[in-house]
Computed example of a mutant assay.
Amino acid sequence: MQTPRLIYFADPMCSWCYGFSPVIAQIRQTFGRALPIEVVMGGLRPGNDKPTTEQAKTELKIHWEHVHEATGLPFDDAVLDRPGFLYDTDPAARAVVRVRREDGEKAVNYLRRLQQAFYAQNQDITKAETLANLAAEFGVDRDAFLADFETDDLKHETWNDYAIAQRAGVTGFPTLVGGPNEEGAYGVVTRGFAPAPPVLQVLHQWLGTEPEPAIRG
């Protein structure tokens, strides 16, 4: 039987994926290397070439407020007010794929860092320079990153991720899939945002492990 793993379909500019990032961190803290996580870019709005309208900004800000209320994570919506801002999710997704080439675990951390930069720190992660600077925080060579960033090879690899998500029937993010089981099949752990306790419960049941007892003070 193959080693169990999780496949995480996500997008760096998906606000509910940002909301789900502490859950991913808790999964990694709980299960460690016994349950590796592979990120696949879902393709939220790749190739969007129309500047964000005032109506769209208003709708996004309301949406982000819902995520904040559900998760408590900080948001700074000033990034949406940058002149001519394009909500094109392809550059950030491509950046994650580039980091994943070097290290799959590093790509999980980088994904979360992009989310923090965009949603909480008013950084424009549609820009290659910003993406390269953030990748350098994880030991990725900045010049090599930028040299690869506009290559057809990396673009095709990223769009192949989107195709994998579509073939898997993923229609929203985050989606977390686990497997293989004894029959070699994969199953959905969560489709859409869910808090940590029910997600961890599903994983413990699947793996036949016991959760750590709560510490009573």
Rank of each mutant, 00 (worst) to 15 (best):
W64T: 08
F31P: 07
V79A: 04
S21F: 09
R45S: 15
V170F: 08
W159E: 15
D81R: 08
I215G: 06
I62C: 07
D148L: 00
D11R: 05
R94S: 05
P46K: 08
I62P: 02
D77S: 12
V108E: 12
D143Y: 08
L176E: 03
T58A: 13
K155V: 09
R28G: 14
L114P: 14
I62T: 15
L35C: 12
T52P: 06
T126L: 01
R167V: 04
P180L: 00
P213Y: 10
D76R: 09
T71Q: 05
G47P: 13
T53W: 05
Y18K: 05
P83H: 06
R28P: 10
P91K: 00
L80V: 01
Y18A: 02
A70R: 09
T175D: 03
T175F: 02
R216F: 12
E59D: 11
D148S: 04
T89D: 09
A128P: 02
G217V: 12
Q166I: 03
L111P: 05
R167G: 10
P4W: 05
V39Q: 11
V189Q: 04
P22R: 14
A34H: 12
E150V: 01
I27V: 14
F149H: 14
L131Q: 00
P197M: 00
A78H: 11
V39F: 14
Y186M: 04
R113G: 01
